[in-house]
Design a protein around this nucleic acid. Structure first.
Length: 592
RNA sequence: GGCCCCGUGGUGUAGUGGUCUAACAUGCCGCCCUGUCACGGCGGAGAUCGACGGUUCAAAUCCGUUCGGGGUCGCCA
């Protein structure tokens, strides 16, 4: 490349560069060979510009351009010129100019890629993941990577200017009980012992508060060895925050401002703060979810009192057992085909719903399989209570709240998707607050912490910790965007005796607690400030900002659903010697 | 661990028991072409239909197993 130093990027060449000689570097996005004239679309990170090679302008460059193929890596020297008005391409940002190629250096040839390096391709994701370096060359993926960079930069700027310190915490830590399955790393030095990879930096950030850091943040990699989803990867990134001398509102305000700043600077979108605050109870009762999507209505309605005393045995027995009868009103869908209704019964079944009733308010009256069990009065009460009118469809379910709420909540989302009721451009943030401290684990027959075991109970509920743990609410809060949990946090326990009470409530003995995190309990005795924090899932946040349906589109090198890296072929086998060093013996037979 | 969807030239699809010696588009290769921008024209190469087993006179097509990918329930404090 002697004497040819890159002077400009492809995407920046606009009409004001006309007449300038430039040296560009990039990849051949496309070549159009007209025999006596060759067009090369040259692409770099900034964009694409058209380079023209003509034998009259530069014979050598023209001959070399004939040999060039897609994805060849070039340095091109040429002169920017305005295009004739009839050859302007309004579809590309640089379409008013082109570069008259004077000289080409082929820095590297390239094999024909297995898929097009362009947006909106329709290829199996397996291929994209295997050739991730080609996938990432596509402009839309580059935009995602750039957005992610900008977003994390803005976060760092924001927290820096609010007097936070970014502190790194260890990746090799001690396995702690509860929560997700740990990724484990065997210790060579300590035979039979293991490190765990952090599910979050929880304990370290609390200890940083004891250490007087006061305001901590970290863009932290976290690991959870659980099954994957479109919005769940086994390793993911959290924006982790912890603050001393604050209450719940302080933390929520700090995050609201950060999110408003982020969306404004990165996406140019104004979002209104403060966000709605909704109690966990309200969220479950009205939306059947602790992460409600508020972009549309169709709330769950409790019609137990309207149907009480009917001839319909299913409803009556549920009500007698303390359950509820609830409904959602699907607007303008009373003409739903019978076949789809049957499908919905099956749909709720997949979530544990035992049945589904319907009332179609058609122009010819109410069509329903259950109104024959209802008096006119009851039908009237239902209609009044739900404000159902002609054209509406009521979907009804009866069960205990722990079933009817989540299942109807799922149905609410499904109906909204089917009827296209969700505005994809809307951003609905909210806080869900007043979470229960514990939930009962049927398998283990004990209470477990809903958020985590360092979460502080509300002061007024501490009295119930021993007798009635189910009644205790926590100083915990989740931030939700469009039905996705962006993150959650809590105020923490900072007194040893209260922490021990909570351990007690979840059946955690003092000995066990001491063995697992005695260091934290001990730290609490050396002057711990009141503190609390929150963590946001950065991958999910970027996914929503980029409007992508999958986390994999905003992670440079994501894993497949079976937690493998198709490009690097990880995980892989290791040499027997490595296992020996680690004192690890396998109980699986190596595949032939 | 359960349920659902997908797997056919490089890529995306069609073909759902025989007429498939597998079609179409695009990409690739060659020739032609001086204003294209998804350039165009002509010609050519390229697939034992994910793998294995079974049913059948006959399988891309039906059945079973398995592998890979995706979605989801469980799981994910």
């Amino acid at each position: 490349m002697l004497g040819l130093k890159r002077t400009n990027s492809c995407g920046e060449l606009m009409s004001n560069f006309a007449g300038q000689e430039v040296v560009l570097c990039g990849w051949v996005s496309r070549r159009r060979d007209h025999g006596g004239l060759i067009f090369v679309d040259l692409r770099d990170r900034s964009g694409i510009v058209q380079v023209v090679f003509s034998p009259e302008v530069a014979q050598d460059a023209f001959l070399k351009a004939e040999t060039v193929r897609n994805e060849y890596v070039l340095t091109v020297r040429g002169v920017v010129k305005l295009r004739d008005s009839d050859t302007i391409n309004p579809n590309m940002p640089t379409g008013e100019v082109e570069v008259n190629g004077l000289e080409i250096r082929i820095l590297n040839a390239a094999k024909t890629p297995p898929f097009y390096i362009q947006d909106d391709i329709d290829v199996d994701e397996t291929l994209r993941l295997k050739y991730r370096y080609l996938d990432l060359r596509r402009p839309e993926m580059q935009r995602n990577i750039i957005l992610r960079h900008r977003a994390t930069k803005l976060m760092r700027d924001y927290f820096d200017s609010n007097n936070f310190l970014e502190v790194e915490t260890p990746i090799l830590i001690k396995s702690t009980p509860e929560g997700a399955r740990d990724y484990l790393v065997p210790s060579r030095v300590h035979p039979g012992k293991f490190f765990a990879l952090p599910q979050s930096p929880q304990i370290y950030k609390q200890i940083l508060m004891v250490a007087g850091i006061e305001r901590y943040f970290q863009i932290a990699r976290c690991f959870r060895d659980e099954d994957l989803r479109a919005d769940r990867q086994p390793e993911f990134t959290q924006l982790d925050i912890e603050m001393s001398f604050v209450d719940q509102e302080d933390i929520m305000k700090m995050m609201e401002k950060m999110l408003a700043y982020l969306f404004k600077e990165a996406n140019g979108i104004e979002i209104s703060a403060p966000f709605i605050r909704m109690t966990y109870d309200d969220a479950m009762n009205k939306y059947g979810s602790d992460k409600p999507d508020l972009r549309f209505g169709m709330e769950l309605m409790d019609i137990s009192e309207a149907v009480r005393g009917s001839e319909f045995k299913v409803f009556e027995s549920v009500l007698k057992a303390g359950g509820r009868v609830k409904a959602i009103k699907v607007p303008n869908y009373s003409h739903i085909p019978r076949k789809e209704l049957d499908g919905l019964v099956e749909y709720v079944g997949s979530f544990g719903g035992k049945g589904l009733a319907w009332m179609c308010y058609t122009p010819d009256g109410i069509k329903s399989q259950i109104t024959k069990f209802f008096s006119e009065e009851i039908v009237g009460k239902i209609t009044a209570m739900t404000e159902a009118g002609e054209g509406d469809l009521l979907l009804l379910m009866a069960d205990k709240p722990a079933v009817v709420n989540p299942v109807l909540g799922q149905l609410r989302l499904e109906m909204a998707r089917r009827l296209d009721m969700i505005d994809p451009d809307k951003l609905c943030f909210l806080w869900v607050v007043d979470f229960p401290m514990f939930e009962y684990d049927e398998e283990e027959k004990r209470w477990v912490a809903m958020h985590h075991m360092f979460t502080a109970p509300r002061d007024e509920d501490i009295q119930y910790l021993e007798q009635d743990p189910g009644r205790v609410l926590a100083k915990a809060y989740d931030v939700i965007l469009n039905g996705t949990e962006l993150g959650g946090g809590s105020l923490r326990i900072y007194q040893r005796d209260l922490q021990e009470k909570v351990f007690n409530a979840i059946g955690f003995s003092v000995e066990e607690a001491t063995e697992k995190f005695g260091y934290l309990l001990e730290a609490f005795e050396y002057g711990t400030p009141p503190h609390g924090g929150i963590a946001l899932g950065i991958d999910r946040l970027i996914m929503l900002m980029a409007g992508r349906p999958s986390l994999r589109d905003v992670i440079a090198f994501p894993k497949t659903q079976s937690a493998t890296d198709l490009m690097a072929q990880a995980p892989g086998t290791v040499a027997p010697r490595q296992l020996k060093d680690l004192h690890v013996k396998l109980d699986v037979l190596a595949k032939k």
